[in-house]
Design a protein around this nucleic acid. Sequence first.
DNA 1: GCCGTTTTCGGCCCGACTGTTTTCAGTCG
Length: 573
Amino acid sequence: MNNQQLAKQLETLADLLEFTGANSFRTRAYRNGARAIRQLTQSMEKLIAENEDLTRIEGIGKSVAEKCQELLATGHLKQMEEILQTVPRSVLDLLNVPKLGPKKAAALFNELQITNLDQLKSACENNLVRGLAGFGEKTEAAILAGIPIAAQANARMLWAEADQFVEQLRSHFQKCPAVKRIEFAGSYRRCSETVGDLDILIVAKDVDEVMDWFAKVDSVAEVIARGPTKMAVRLENGPNVDLRVVPNESFGAALQYFTGSKEHNVAIRQRAKDRNLKVNEWGVFSDADPEKSIAGTEENDVYQSLGLTWITPELRENRGEIELAEKNQLPKLIELKDIAGDLHMHTTATDGSATIEEMAEAAKAIGLHYIAITDHSKRVSMANGLNKKRLLEQWEEIDCLNEWMTDDFIILKGIECDILEAGGMDLPDDVLEQADWVIASVHYGQNQPSEKITQRIIGAIENPFVSIIAHPTGRLINSRPPYDVDMEAVMDAAVTHRKMLELNASPKRLDLNEFHLAAAKKRGIPIVISTDAHHPHGLRAMRYGIQQARRAGLEPKDVANTRTWGDLKSLIL
DNA sequence: GCCGTTTTCGGCCCGACTGTTTTCAGTCG
């Protein structure tokens, strides 16, 4: 059982406990424990095998540690089995219905014996729900309307998808004369891998005018709520969008508040409390004079009033950024303009849709100084992968293009060489030796047991001609889990053999994730951010990779392709 | 259940909105 599975079990236990009316701080403790486990780069299995003291990990106490040991030893939790004797697992679906929380869901189960969404629907249609204490006609109707939403719950959009809704909304509001300031907050602003709802903050000349304008967005399916300062809508085939209209003197405080994350804000508000201050979405207030706002117009002032430098939204996860801000030691995070070259892309020779020259021209147009052409190797037959002969021909063509081009731009002779199922590389060393840049990656046998797939990847790292491992965990966000690879072992091998690891910038990959990236940085493993572009427009995906790198705290020096090609090469040779 | 250079007990972030209520509980972020 890996860390993600372990965390998932603890979260399910928390959900079930909440349903049975357990102490809310207890359920929170389980969720915090799950969060801590998700963020670990070492495997819990290994830590336990080595008899490490798990309670040294923040958020994990005696009880959570025991739960982990039990899960790894037996595969299940006795406590969870006991709860499932009385409450079927399907009740957890009820919690996905908007406006149904643990209390109301438990009432439905206890009073009406409702255990799943179908039964809930039928009970609403037969007007049974309105009769329960605390429920009424409106609640019943809202639940009925929310059941289809619950059925497709848990689907968070990729950040890149959310960005399209944001651009649409931004241009809609730009035409509204009553809007004075506008900003999108929430997980979108933090550049999270996935985004649930969107949050818009607006300073307005006229609140009603802005809210009326909001309701006129083309794709609004339903106005969920509308009050004096807050309005929420659901978009057709899209996310829920919350709008908050705030006075200008509160804009910075509201932006801080609604950007989150929850964990960051909890810590920020605790910090305020320790200083006899109170932070809320309206401003920063002193206990001595609770009427008078000390800061709030600009976000920067909110942080300053707490003795902190401004913290970029990507870092707001309460993973040490507050302590660094206090000492003015926040990293100078990498930016898109720092990137000098792109070292992973495909052409018409395999599954790309543009020629080498077209890719080079597109790369020049966005200011890059070098690219590597890295088509697939022959094992990837689906993509018409290159054998030795075709690859050598492609490299001759690249030699000609480099000679023919008069500027300083460099096209590198590369290959994305498959790591075969049985281990070993898909092309012989005497070919790889002639390349400028060799990417090794797994495409087949992704479900192999941890030991096997880890050894395959380490085997590739040990090959003297391999430069880098691409998309090292293979996950696709929302659709495919990572390989069961031991990334600690892979990183150890990368250090030993002076190899690099890729951050694949494709918005549905973003592989490595932020935790692995931070761990790689700590070990001094150079990261290369690559687009894996299959067409010229694909080179623009670099921005998603930059966002991911920033959330991991990466600086230009941590990312190899901020360097010239000559300097980059010296890192691995 | 977790945590602790004031603590091993007593806290644990905080406000808006809704619906069901006549002063508040539940949900949400």
